[in-house]
Simulated assay, not measured.
Amino acid sequence: MYFAELTSPEVDSLRSGSRTPVLLLPVGAVEPHGPHAPLGTDPLISQGMCERAARRLDGDPEVRALILPALPYGVTQFARGFAGGVHIAAETLFALVTDVCRALAEQGLDRVVIVNNHFEPEHVATLRRAAESVGAAYLDLVRRRNAERLTDEFRSGSCHAGRYETSLVLADRPDLVDTAAMRELPAVPVDLPSAMRAGQSDFRDMGMNAAYCGAPAEATAAEGAETFETLTTMLVETIRAKAKGAC
């Protein structure tokens, strides 16, 4: 399922095979996710979605999904002042994504789906612009039609390293969550979209003094597994649409 594990002749054969190849590009950011969750939470979720979608489509007669090496760095300035954040400029992200997509398109592999789980506005806007520029599909989870299929906490906007994201990490890599610290964390209700619209761009200004919001103490691996099922269904729908040229 991993593009970079194929040989050059195997990639060459993708173009003449009976199954339409769709390449998945996991994207995220390296940034603080509270005192309990890993810096790489966002790309971990994106990678988990891609792996589950590729497995679900394994053996599909029409579509072959392959996972490109992830782009783990993103536009992440809201967490400045906390240790561990690695910010890249929007134009750097734009260039990385478009260069990768164009390099693939030059080889006849022009069906790419961008899979992102870092929702800082400038990061999302950059990925939308990049996808439009190169004709890639972008599974935009913050669009209302998609967000409505996810959990209550996600829809509330109070979900950075909270119950929603922490549950997903527990379902995929429980060894990376400090569950003792997680259980002691009080809920921090912050409407991130409203705060962003009001011009706030710093976690501490939003009341996120420990770089999280929501209710991480309520996170469970079971909820994470269920959410992954929903996310995977959404991604498979996007893959099939891209294979047919519908997006």
Rank of each mutant, 00 (worst) to 15 (best):
D60Y: 07
A29I: 03
H36F: 01
D42T: 07
S18R: 13
P21S: 02
L24Q: 03
S18I: 10
G34Q: 04
G34M: 04
R55V: 12
S16F: 09
L57Y: 07
D42F: 06
E31Y: 02
G40F: 12
L39N: 01
L57I: 10
A37P: 05
E62N: 11
R56F: 06
V22P: 05
D42P: 03
A53Y: 11
A53F: 12
L25D: 01
P35E: 02
A53P: 11
P26D: 02
T20K: 09
V27W: 05
S18A: 15
H33A: 00
L24Y: 04
M49H: 12
P38G: 03
T20S: 08
P26Q: 05
P35G: 02
L24K: 04
R15V: 15
R55F: 10
D42Q: 05
T41H: 07
I45C: 09
L23N: 01
T41W: 07
E51G: 09
R52E: 12
G17A: 15
Q47A: 15
Q47P: 06
L24W: 05
P21G: 02
G17T: 08
P26C: 03
G59S: 06
L24S: 04
L23A: 01
E62Q: 13
G28S: 04
P32E: 00
V22H: 03
A37H: 04
T41I: 08
V63D: 03
D12H: 14
E31W: 01
C50F: 11
L44D: 14
V27N: 09
D12G: 13
L39V: 03
R55H: 14
E31Q: 09
C50I: 10
